[in-house]
Design a binder for these strands. Structure first.
Lengths: 199, 199
DNA sequence: CATCAATGTCGTCACTGTAGACTTTGGCCA
DNA sequence: TGGCCAAAGTCTACAGTGACGACATTGATG
């Protein structure tokens, strides 16, 4: 699927390298991203990549940004038919975990080089989490001054579950078992940060 | 600190390699473990390592086992003066996170190659978690059939927090802030899985 | 139309994991 | 005691990686 190149200048090398690297990472995670392999597949000299990325780390980071974008979009799609804060928050949690399980390699990349600020432009999964919590505040089911703590507890919970089951020690469990457990964990977390409706 | 070797046969190469590799990993994580570097520091040919480890992955796994042992011991020490289930569980959670923050490189190794069964011999952090939950059951603060779910929620929560703050996107936060937040998250998790005392 | 900065290429270096074939040596048995 | 052999080293080599300096090509801009 590597586009043949007629002219000396590729014209779109940076983007194409990221595209190729995403496929490399999809199977085996961040370690599978290599400058030589990626440039080879694009049909370009290895050195050419250094016109666009300072070093391998910068390359991997670029891939991470790209993947994180898609992750946020995937999660957002899952929130489509959520009509209250609880549903929104549950969708974020389950979507986060589902992405990690469906695309373990990408999940690995996304949180590998996520140093400093990475959610530069659009929405990140964390943004979606914050929005859900704000909705809960509006509904009176979460104290405004608990948003930060709740965000941390929720993020930790889903991230840990995702890490353990997608590439961690629990990766061998059958997918169905994991899905069931994911629902339980997310429900536990939602219950932990919200107070019951008062009606 | 590499022991000088008088005879052709080293006599204790496997253990010494693991010792050296632990130090390598301590700084930069699992990626810093290298067959060549480790054998060089021990004063032995690279090929010699292959008499004791099938390949690099097996080497890293051996280091992981060693580190995980120490992690369990560190956590257990923290439980020393816990007198009820809640205190035991809190100690496990805070100990788990503290280890990850104090030794991020080791934490990385410990959960890198932890495939299959790894807590072969003694206690693992997970074992300690289960024991704490059993204590809560004995105190009537946790339903016996909820132990599995509670274990998963707690493990996910602390593991996620540890991952995010020790080598993940939140690694740049000041340690004090992280410690404060850790206490909150652990408290949230404990509250999430226990029911209040009925007295 | 000339030129120049951006973008590729070439050849090379240091380093890594891994493999085959050889050497040394400690311990066991006749 | 002496001989031998399997365990545990050594030496040499290969393919692959990230990175670099120097050079070549080109499209856009004055």
């Amino acid at each position: 699927m590597t586009t043949a190149r007629a002219s000396y200048h590729h014209g779109n090398l940076r983007e194409e390298l990221v595209r190729v690297a995403r496929e490399l990472a999809r199977v085996d995670g961040a370690d599978a991203i290599g400058i030589r392999e990626a440039t080879r597949q694009v049909g370009v000299t290895a050195r050419a990549a250094y016109r666009h990325f300072a070093d391998r780390d910068a390359f991997v980071s670029a891939v991470a940004v790209s993947v994180l974008d898609e992750m946020a979009a995937t999660i957002a799609a899952r929130q489509a038919d959520a009509d209250d804060g609880t549903a929104l928050l549950t969708a974020v949690g389950e979507g986060y975990i589902a992405f990690a399980l469906d695309e373990p390699g990408w999940f690995d990349v996304a949180f590998f080089a996520m140093g400093e600020k990475l959610q530069a432009g659009g929405r990140s999964p964390y943004t979606l989490l914050e929005e859900s919590l704000e909705a809960l505040v509006a509904e009176g089911r979460l104290a405004a001054d608990r948003v930060g703590d709740a965000a941390m507890t929720c993020w930790s919970g889903v991230h840990g579950f995702a890490t353990l089951t997608s590439r961690g020690p629990l990766r061998a469990l059958p997918r169905e078992t994991i899905d069931d457990q994911a629902r339980v964990v997310v429900a536990d977390l939602v219950a932990a940060v919200t107070r019951p409706t008062k009606d």
